[in-house]
């Protein structure tokens, strides 16, 4: 004979476990646990973002002159979009989305300002405040071909 309190307790336990299972079914998000302790669909969410940087090759066809000059001199390792910003909108609609044309001496100084942390063999540095301060850099150096 099973004592009555055990029967009653079993019913209570059965209800608790049942409620837990139902709640779990309702509250667990779709695709949770398919690949691990996370929503597998979150992988797709993370992939669902437009690429903004298109690479140097994407400019070639429309800007032959700049591409050619750029490739022929010491700035050839600099990506176009590093100076001009992300081009995804410009590439598909160049007339309505303009890229920045960087201006000012401070722009070149980001790379060329004398700094003890900059490896001298990788980048030639100037004390910008002393290097022809009365002009803009691009009046003497073509940004695409600095030694033109």
């Amino acid at each position: 004979m099973i004592p009555p309190q055990i029967t009653r307790l079993s019913i209570v336990f059965a209800i608790i476990i049942g409620v837990f299972l139902v709640l779990r079914l309702i509250l667990t998000p779709v695709s949770f646990g398919e690949k691990g302790h996370y929503r597998a669909l979150a992988l797709i969410d993370n992939m669902d973002h437009e690429m903004h940087y298109m690479g140097n090759e994407s400019c070639q066809n429309c800007h032959e002159l700049e591409t050619e000059m750029h490739a022929s001199d010491l700035h050839s390792d600099l990506p176009c979009e590093g100076c001009h910003g992300p081009a995804y909108l410009h590439n598909s609609k160049p007339d309505s989305f303009h890229l920045v044309k960087p201006e000012g001496r401070q722009f070149c100084a980001k790379c060329h300002e004398q700094n003890a942390a900059r490896p001298g063999d990788l980048i030639n540095q100037k004390i910008i405040a002393e290097h022809n301060p009365e002009y803009q850099c691009i009046e003497c150096h073509n940004p695409h071909k600095p030694w033109e």
Binding site: H52, Y53, G55, D77, L78, P79, E81, G82, C111, I123
Partner: peptide, 9 residues
């Protein structure tokens, strides 16, 4: 993107 725009690799 960061590796793409790095001028020195």
């Amino acid at each position: 993107a960061c590796a793409l725009v790095c001028p020195t690799g």
